[in-house]
Design a protein around this nucleic acid. Structure first.
Lengths: 122, 122
DNA sequence: ACCTCAAATAGTAATAGTTCTTATTATTAT
DNA sequence: ATAATAATAAGAACTATTACTATTTGAGGT
């Protein structure tokens, strides 16, 4: 993959936040640095960076958001503020359980824990 | 909510399968019974049935699929055949853990366990 | 520094899934 | 049976994403 200033900028934007931005948000931030950047470039590069293992995508409803954390992990989603926060849930039991009960070989567990974060609990 | 033959047909279609069909698939099945039914009617009614608690929706990537099972449960997704199968994972530990560690009140855990089902394991 | 050439880009058209609009039809209370 | 209004069919519109294409750019060789 050849160097491109656009791709590096896109990578830096995603990697400098834990907000899990979507393509549109990355595009808006990128425009401040590269006014002529196009939305297609953002989509193409986010996909390439994901295929390359530099980023990972997560679906929030029907839209893709990008995560700088490529290690296996899960998310807490607050339905009051929409925030998505990385969290690690111990899932070895789940993996072995699925194997034993259903002969199902687990590759990945996509888990989003939905609820209300401490900011909105009084 | 007033009675409609279209809505009852849509409900019956989703409730008669465990295949978790999407809107397009429900539409195609509904057309066999009501040739003039429109796609908008399918979308509108699926949404209403979900709001009513008769069905629930799950996202498979970025598309919505409908599930007759409205009880809390999770899914196994085989990446070979795309099949989505209901499964119950014990998650009381997760709920109490999130509360204790992050003061996060859990409403629901959306969990899709991705891997290979026994049909494709030799 | 200049040339070459494939890879990447900007701009725009196209697509997929879904929601909205509107004139017409169907259900239900009276 | 009639009136009031919720639901429909048909198609336009919208949102997120991907594809197309002429032009530009990065990197290696000269």
């Amino acid at each position: 993959m050849r160097f491109s200033y656009q791709r590096e900028t896109i990578r830096d934007i995603v990697c400098s936040t834990n907000a899990h931005p979507n393509a549109g948000q990355v595009f808006n931030l990128a425009k401040k640095l590269i006014p002529k950047i196009s939305l297609g470039t953002v989509y193409r590069n986010l996909k390439q960076l994901e295929e390359n293992g530099d980023l990972r995508s997560i679906y929030d409803g029907n839209i893709a958001r990008y995560d700088r954390n490529t290690e296996p992990h899960n998310h807490l989603k607050c339905k009051k503020c929409g925030a998505l926060v990385d969290v690690n849930v111990h899932d070895n039991d789940i993996r072995s359980d699925m194997k034993k009960k259903f002969q199902f070989t687990v590759d990945d567990i996509e888990m989003t824990i939905i609820g209300t974060c401490q900011k909105h609990t009084k």
